[in-house]
Design a protein around this nucleic acid. Structure first.
Lengths: 326, 326
DNA sequence: CTGAAAGCGCTTACAG
DNA sequence: CTGAAAGCGCTTACAG
């Protein structure tokens, strides 16, 4: 910018004015400046600008795994809102590792992002306190913050599962296996709660032997199904707690003879092309992302009302696999 | 940092030394500085650092659509390499809009990223020339740069399709329909070329009426299939040019009675759980991302050899849909 | 309408 | 081992 000023034979401030489109510059002067800019191939250094101004017009996004469609949809929605506001977004995957979540969030903050969207892996977010104090705003998605007060946008996990289980009950199923993720995960615990509530609402007993909570890996799913289908009263239906569990269940069922009814939490591509097509409780990842981004930008613009938790409703989509009688 | 220096009763440079872990600081002095840092909740401002140092330790990534699994896999791979190098990554989706690609790339450059990974939507990359001159390094993925000289990491598109078509020919198919994306897209054109080459290698004529190139939308696919299956010599097999085309084809076939053999370019989740399971030519998105990131960081570290184009081989995965005789 | 000075928060090169 | 000065590229507050 200094070079531009020298080349154009004007003051530094005048160049700044031209670059920022401020008024009060004689057209002739502006023309000289523009000529110098083109000649020198000048491009403003945003970093220097922020140093002076405060805001960086960047936000950071920490998610669990970019390759999971739930998170990539969510990311795209956040990105779209950010672009409309003229913001750029850093993304990073925590790979379900609390330490990696913290490192990413702190690295983003060191770059002085104005805000953070976090799909948390950590069970303790006190590490964010200094950042919050420094003015960074944070919105949690999918799972709430722990040990700090912060906004969150969640799916109605328990309600979605209740709807799914009620649907299976209405088909006459009485023994429904529940395959969920490890109960340390907020969403997994909420969904299990939904399962219990639905049974209670129908006046049915809760049988722990019909619940399997763990990482949806081949071995774990096989073991769980061996248990579900053994004995005199095998399950006649399954509820899977997230899209990875649903896919793992389908893979396992493909190797077995049992054909239980199946409802999965979270929709996935091609669910409608399988035989039978898979009935799911859909959570709207894009809506979660959009809502979170809107909230984030409202906070960035100065809204400092109390922390809010927004729950987005889910939707049961019957496609066949959940409409099988015992 | 000034406040820290004052609080600790030392010089600014000493704080800088402590923060950067430079030697030649008396342990006692360092302790005082650390105490002040904790007391004040000091966090170094990376932006100011870069202003002085040049590098920002950030890269930008422009892709077509974050929600497409091909791109999200690719992104994750780039991210992982970047993290290992201590770099952060900006991401942005062009949504197949050349203008949006340019805006994103330029916005990243204004933030002074050290490098750029671009999955291009644009047909002309001369807009990057000033950035390249300014020292930004760029690696293209999936599709090469146009009108500028730059590194690229691509799948072996033509080779992959040749393998897929040869596979269908070996099952006895002689009339194979090709459903590709619009031919302006580099990969679509390359894949069509592979189709033609495979036919030529087998001594078969190229019949234009068996080719449909366009955005893989419901209407276009239906129209194309109407044509493919009409007349006295309908196609007995289909080759789809990308994962969206494959899924669109499956959706369309689900509404029809024809049951052609099918091979798709690009693998997708659940391909193995469909009936029949889908035979694909797999391109390794993660490997493309990893290779591109490696190349990018080699460039960032100063490798200024001639621009390179790296082609990664593909793999035919027979699963059933491609092993159907006419 | 225009510009010289000071400063954002850090590092670099130098002197003690 | 330690620190005062200058500067990265811009903007802010002020004076002409």
């Amino acid at each position: 910018m200094n070079d531009v000023a020298r080349t154009a034979g004007v003051g530094l401030k005048t160049v700044s004015r031209v670059v920022n489109g401020e008024p009060r510059v004689r057209p002739e002067t502006a023309r000289k400046v523009h000529a110098a800019i083109t000649k020198l191939g000048f491009r403003r250094h945003e970093g220097a600008r922020w140093l002076r101004q405060g805001s960086t017009a960047c936000i950071g996004m920490v998610l669990e795994d970019m390759a999971d469609p739930f998170y990539s949809m969510l990311t795209r929605a956040v990105e779209q809102v950010a672009r409309a506001k003229g913001f750029l977004v850093f993304t990073g995957s925590s790979e379900a590792d609390p330490a990696q979540e913290r490192e990413l969030a702190q690295a983003f903050c060191a770059r002085r992002v104005d805000g953070l969207v976090i799909a948390p892996a950590s069970q303790d977010h006190r590490y964010l306190e200094p950042e919050l104090q420094a003015g960074v705003v944070v919105v949690f998605v999918d799972r709430p913050a722990q040990n700090i007060d912060a906004d969150a946008v969640l799916a109605d996990n328990a309600g979605g599962v209740r709807a799914g289980i009620a649907h299976l009950l209405s088909q006459g199923h009485r023994r429904i296996g529940f395959l969920g993720d490890t109960p340390e995960i907020f969403t997994a615990a909420q969904r299990l709660r939904g399962y219990q509530e639905a049974l209670a609402a129908a006046g049915l007993p809760f049988d722990e032997s019909l619940v399997a909570m763990g990482r949806p890996e081949q071995g774990f799913v096989r073991m769980s199904f061996d248990r579900f289908f053994a004995g005199p009263e095998p399950v006649s239906a399954l509820f899977t707690g997230n899209n990875r569990a649903t896919v793992a269940a389908l893979r396992e069922l493909a190797t077995r003879t049992e054909r239980p009814a199946l409802v999965g939490f979270d929709d996935f591509e091609l669910a409608d092309l399988l035989h039978p097509a898979i009935t799911v409780v859909k959570q709207d990842a894009a809506a979660i992302g959009r809502t979170a981004a809107d909230l984030l930008f409202r906070r960035i613009s100065g809204d400092d009302g109390p922390a809010r938790t927004i729950e987005l409703s889910t939707q049961l989509i019957p496609r066949g696999s959940g409409e099988v009688t015992p």
